[in-house]
């Protein structure tokens, strides 16, 4: 059984194996620096569907099936699917999972969803409540713009601090087994709100939460930052990265050498005009399912701290003057097995 350690972490005692991942991305992501790591690059972001929302569900559905298929399992063998997205009532996931007939936990952690889903899958397995699980998260640029900002065809300018919602779905099949890499621990984030109200600067809203979660992970596990090959945040972007490094430095940790941000990795900001970087649930999910998993499997890297970051806000709360609350969930992923 998992051991609760330190203030807000868990260390697992079973081999919780990530046996497969799948990543599906939109056309813009398919033109980005990580394109060779993705399983599916869509030619049409509407996928022949009637709406952006339906397209997102279709992406989620197809990608979940692909991940299960790559693990040589059938949907009937999956005990739980834990997924989430950005749309109201998580409808992207609901209709993506609808046809799979698998017990479903829908989760909302904004762009930190992949971290939350992977944490819950690991807890389910370690507690003996499940053998095979799937964690996933999706987002779609157009459905997110429609819900959070403006209609697609409205002629507006984006600010330099704005981020670009990633279109896609990332999924990981997590089971009890002896195939690397493994989820060996988690640090569940607290809501940290430093009073940022600018919805076009979400990196700034999330950086304190990321700093808090990473700090707590290092404290709880009594590790130094260089224990990890990479500390990978979700979608802080260029602005958020700068703030994160400063915040952690003030707390006595220098992660500048091994920090990576999925939002910075996924797009080429000069060529693709994505301003502060990528964002959205899919940003960290597809970067993990694509590049990071590829490198872990081939032992190019062996230990990462995966920290999807989320800005917990709704258009309503922002209009009512609420600040943007940040959250980040740490998932420790290592090639070294926990027990023999």
């Amino acid at each position: 059984m998992a051991k609760h350690i330190g203030k807000q972490s868990m260390r697992f005692e079973k081999n919780i194996s990530i046996v497969s991942t799948a990543s599906t991305v939109g056309t813009k992501e398919g033109e980005g620096p990580l394109r060779e790591y993705f399983d599916v690059i869509l030619q049409d972001n509407l996928l022949g569907q009637e709406s952006w929302e339906k397209a997102e569900s279709k992406i989620a559905s197809d990608n979940l099936k692909l991940a299960i298929n790559k693990a040589n399992l059938s949907p009937q063998q999956i005990d739980y699917v834990v997924t989430g997205d950005l749309l109201n009532q998580c409808c992207g996931s609901t209709f993506g999972v609808r046809g799979l007939k698998i017990p479903f936990f829908g989760v909302f952690g904004a762009c930190s969803t992949m971290g939350e889903a992977m944490s819950l899958c690991a807890i389910l397995i370690d507690g003996g409540g499940a053998k095979n699980t799937v964690a996933g998260a999706s987002s779609h640029f157009c459905s997110a713009e429609k819900q959070f900002r403006f209609p697609m065809d409205l002629g507006t300018q984006r600010t330099p601090t704005a981020t670009w919602t990633v279109t896609g779905d990332g999924a990981a099949v997590i089971t009890e087994g002896n195939d690397h890499p493994y989820i060996t621990g988690i640090t569940t984030g607290k809501i940290v709100d430093m009073g940022i109200t600018d919805a076009n600067n979400m990196g700034a809203a999330m950086a304190p939460a990321a700093a808090d979660a990473i700090y707590q992970n290092l404290q709880d596990f009594n590790r130094k930052p260089d224990y990890y090959d990479y500390i990978v945040t979700g979608d802080l972007g260029y602005v958020g990265k700068e703030l994160l490094l400063k915040l952690l430095k003030e707390k006595g940790y220098d992660i500048s050498k091994n920090h990576m941000d999925c939002g910075i990795e996924i797009f080429d900001r000069d060529r693709q005009d994505t301003h502060s970087g990528g964002s959205g649930c899919a940003c960290s999910a597809v970067t993990f399912a694509g590049m990071l998993y590829y490198k872990l499997r081939r032992r190019i890297i062996n230990r990462i701290l995966f920290v999807p970051t989320g800005a917990l806000m709704s258009p309503t709360s922002v209009q009512q003057g609420e600040s943007i609350a940040g959250i980040a969930h740490c998932v420790v992923i290592e090639n070294q097995e926990v027990c023999q």
């Binding site: 601090t161 009073g195 940022i196 700034a204 304190p208 602005v239 700068e242 703030l243 003030e250």
Partner: peptide, 20 residues
């Protein structure tokens, strides 16, 4: 050190955020 206040953080954000 001591916990950072919202005002201090706001100044830090302003410095880190490029203007249009």
């Amino acid at each position: 050190g001591k916990e950072m206040t919202k005002e201090q953080y706001s100044k830090m954000v302003e410095k880190a955020s490029p203007n249009s």
